[in-house]
């Protein structure tokens, strides 16, 4: 670090060792999960019984691979659907919020900004139960007064999407705001001077500038939705997303099938995260 400050060599080595140990700690659970996905055994534990790909592609009991296990694939589909919806909603609302707080001065601006940050400090499970209570109240009210039975307000996909969106929107707002603050407004004014309408200026100048943040926000939202557990747990209906389906399996006992699912998930999410980093590096670095 700072060359002018001398520290005992032993101290430095110890420190390095500690940092190395820390990364071992970070990697260990993920490594064992991945490795045991390839163990030719019915349990994800030692002894090692040989290498197999059956937990990915196996067709017959007891070794049915991930890609042939219908409930898991269906749960994966549910998760993907929920994540896309949550991300799309969050990016739309987050961008709108970013523009609102960046461009307008209005009454209760400060108060609303604090309110906007609150979902970050509300425990996920509390967020889940309050949305559950509210939607049940509305559903019961509609049923009692009009005789309408609205399935969307009962636990299920729609509520899971709304529940996750309720806090993911905050994160996306922060991501988009950070970039919008760096935007030079004179660029937009130049477009206006050249005869563009306000909407055209935003569409052709500001939105392209925001693109890295929008894509980044979308991916962050997607990953957060995909791995969310607490809020989802309270709102889930019969179409369980993958985390809930895996949790139910894990409670019954684990097989390397779960390792294989985990590895697929890890590869998927790491790939997405890398994609995001590459994308942002290219846009901002160039």
């Amino acid at each position: 670090m700072i060359p002018s400050i001398r520290q005992p060599a032993a101290f430095r080595i110890l420190w390095k060792l500690y940092v190395a140990l820390f990364f071992v700690y970070l990697a260990l659970p993920l490594v064992v999960v991945s490795v045991f996905a390839f163990n030719d055994s019915l349990f994800p534990s030692l002894p090692w019984k040989g290498f197999t790909l059956e937990w990915f592609f196996g067709q017959s009991r007891p070794m049915i691979g991930v890609f042939n296990e219908r409930p898991i694939m269906r749960a994966l589909g549910n998760s993907a659907f929920i994540a896309v919806m949550v991300s799309a909603l969050s990016v739309a609302v987050g961008t709108s919020n970013a523009f609102l707080f960046n461009r307008y001065q209005f009454r209760f601006r400060g108060l609303l900004y604090v309110l906007l940050l609150l979902p970050l400090v509300i425990p996920g499970i509390v967020l889940g139960i309050s949305i559950l209570i509210f939607s049940s109240n509305v559903a019961n009210g509609l049923e009692d007064s009009f005789g309408w039975d609205i399935a969307a307000l009962r636990p299920g996909l729609v509520l899971v999407i709304l529940g996750q969106f309720s806090f993911v929107a905050t994160i996306v707002t922060l991501v988009v705001s950070a970039r919008l603050q760096k935007f030079d407004p004179t660029l937009e004014e130049a477009a206006l001077n050249l005869g563009a309408t306000r909407l055209t200026a935003v569409r052709t100048i500001t939105l392209p500038y925001l693109m890295p943040a929008l894509v980044g926000g979308f991916i962050v939202a997607f990953l957060m939705s995909f791995e969310n557990f607490n809020t989802t747990l309270m709102l889930v209906g019969s179409d369980a997303p993958l985390t809930i389906a895996m949790f139910d399996r894990l409670k019954e006992g684990s097989t390397p099938l779960l390792n294989a699912v985990s590895l697929v998930l890890m590869i998927g999410s790491t790939g997405l995260a890398l994609l995001m980093i590459l994308f942002q590096g290219r846009k901002t670095g160039g």
């Binding site: 990364f23 970070l26 990697a27 260990l28 659970p29 993920l30 490594v31 064992v32 999960v33 045991f36 349990f43 994800p44 534990s45 030692l46 990953l223 995909f226 791995e227 557990f229 993958l242 985390t243 895996m246 949790f247 894990l250 684990s254 779960l258 390792n259 985990s262 998930l265 890890m266 999410s269 790491t270 997405l272 995260a273 980093i277």
Partner: peptide, 27 residues
Amino acid sequence: LLCLVPFWVSELVRTFGWMILLRETGI
């Protein structure tokens, strides 16, 4: 980046990893 990578993985997977490591028949 190495610090970030484990956390893009679902909490369930991480917990599962610790179960494989720590349980009676674990590593």
